[in-house]
Design a protein around this nucleic acid. Structure first.
Lengths: 357, 357
DNA sequence: TTGAAAGCGCTAACAC
DNA sequence: GTGTTAGCGCTTTCAA
């Protein structure tokens, strides 16, 4: 009986503590009677190593399943081969596509990706950027919700590439950017509403310290003016990018007899909220009110009515952002900033169609 | 002129190389004429430090903006305060909620989260797990798509907690699990279809090596048999979890005169594909065909028809998984495994309602 | 071609 | 209380 017990114990925990630590360079070195540096060289393929020594080492690596400790490497290298991505909301398909884009380029270059979700909170955003920098990321892709970039200016200046997407930082010129021209995009979608015969057009958007908000609002205003329409201030809602605000704002507009015949929202969540309010009021889209927004991607094919929207090339934004960082990795030290503008698509669907003469 | 140039240069690149490196412990130590260990102690709040020394140090930290190098800490500690999360698809709202759940618990404990996206590819999954382990993560949360866990058995045995969610690994007993009872959930949603009067019920699911697939299929079969219905093999589709497969399979079923009156899909993407096929065929939901699936979350409120579905508590799955890891961190070495079963919700919507007597 | 040794930035004994 | 020092696991001169 006691033998059996012993046996079982032996099976489940072979040598206790000894086994807990993964095999490392010096183990291989000792085992093969070579120096750690030789092993290191063959692992990395740097420097010359005798043919048969290399053989033996490669063999042992396979046998033992040796895996280099990336943390030690990063410390030595003083840079983790890692990209940080900071987004406002992971469940937002725009961001998840951006991330996939970053991911693709990163993995092509054997980099890893650290993804952080800020829930649109500036505090969290700053915290995460700090943490990522402390972790020696090679570069950052940030959809900022307005953190004070000056906090990180030392890092930016020290050459760690920051690539902003979506929102511009409220700051100087020393950063990279990948985004669409929000002003222009907003003008084009507003123009579409005007072309449908609307003149009483409302717009809802997020906080104005985010450039996506302010630029989209600006484009909206410009377009109306170009068409000889004076924007009604009461029909301009500035709040958050969340569904709930879209709902509240729309409800308020609908309380009044004199209501807009079309609504533009600066993102899809706002629009979903707005639509809820419209339906609650018993109104029809687009007959009573036409709607359009930014970023309404319908993955399901079942969203009804289909929503007219500006669609950003999210995946490309992510991959290009990552490529910028990779380029900076190669010509390190050269302080150079890229601003890349991508072309969005205006997708026309039922929600805005049907002339309003 | 030459003065001006000099001035400009001075502004943009102060001391060249000197500035590139962030301030570190020894800098503070030198500057304050104390030892690095004293500074380290006050940074970490470990060990006693004289009141005024501490003051001075804290001051200097604020002045210089010193941030500890996490990579060095991790190396020393032999563990990065980081959780790895491996999911099949970031754009899937189920997973993004899981991630948010993990994230919450992690950040409460000052841990970071590494998110990896496998695109449902086993190769990528194995690669990412390897990379995460090389990066000394404290634990892993994995929605496996079938990688060979034996590859990582040494790590599991060495005490790094693996928490599986969603899918079970095709292996032994030595792992943690947080999931719903898929068999039971599947039975309950199938029963609902039966209760609506359906007897010709089809089911489509993903690869059977994923337990979510096989268990859901099993539950489906059991339920039919319990109700005295013999499952029709031609109406059981085993393929992938992607929309395209749902579409193809459904189309095939609809080619035949004798078609199912209800369809269950093992996830929402399959269902969206199926619905597309149903509409293309000019059929109505639920009048001609009732549908139901797993995980159909409608964030927009606009998906029409509303889809009857089993909703998993995704956020909780993520947070509980992370909590398990945190617990293991505290009682390190103790090899103990937790299997936690959460209760899903059956959400009834139009897509399956209306008796079929 | 190979090895010895000096760190990367930090923590934690262990002395004083 | 505070300082000295020995690593954490790896890479990379520099000699041999």
């Amino acid at each position: 009986m006691s033998q059996l017990l012993l046996f079982a114990q032996t099976l489940s925990q072979p040598l206790k503590e000894e086994w807990r630590d993964a095999v490392q360079l010096k183990d291989l070195a000792k085992q093969l009677n070579v120096s750690v540096s030789t092993v290191s060289r063959t692992v990395n393929g740097t420097g010359r190593v005798g043919a048969k020594t290399r053989e033996r080492i490669l063999d042992a690596i396979k046998q033992t399943g040796y895996q280099p400790n990336e943390v030690a490497r990063s410390l030595k290298r003083r840079s983790a081969r890692t990209l940080g991505v900071v987004v406002a909301d992971l469940s937002n398909s725009f961001y998840s596509k951006v991330i996939k884009g970053v991911e693709k380029v990163a993995s092509e270059n054997s980099y890893n990706v650290f993804v952080c979700n800020t829930d649109e909170e500036v505090g969290k955003e700053e915290e995460y950027i700090r943490v990522l920098l402390q972790n020696q990321v090679s570069g950052l892709v940030i959809a900022t919700v307005g953190s004070d970039v000056r906090l990180f200016q030392p890092y930016i200046d020290s050459g760690i590439p920051f690539v902003f997407i979506d929102n511009l930082p409220s700051l100087e010129d020393r950063f990279n950017l990948v985004a669409i021209d929000n002003d222009k995009a907003s003008r084009s979608i507003t123009q579409h509403l005007v072309d449908q015969g609307h003149r009483k057009i409302a717009m809802m958007t997020g906080p104005l310290n985010q450039s996506t908000s302010s630029e989209r609002l600006l484009g909206f205003r410009k377009c109306l003016e170009e068409n000889g329409i004076t924007p009604e201030e009461r029909w301009i809602g500035v709040g958050t990018f969340k569904q709930e605000y879209g709902y509240r704002m729309m409800r308020e507009w609908l309380l009044n007899e004199d209501r807009p015949t079309a609504v533009l929202a600066a993102n899809d969540f706002l629009m979903y909220g707005a639509i809820k309010a419209i339906y609650e009021r018993g109104l029809k889209i687009p007959e009573d009110i036409a709607v359009a927004c930014f970023d309404a991607n319908d993955e399901t094919g079942l969203i009804s009515p289909g929503i007219t929207a500006i669609i950003q090339p999210a995946y490309e934004i992510g991959s290009i952002a990552a490529e910028i960082i990779m380029r900076r990795e190669h010509d390190k030290g050269r302080k150079q900033y890229e601003k890349i503008e991508l072309e969005p698509v205006l997708l026309l669907k039922q929600s805005s169609m049907g002339n309003k003469g």
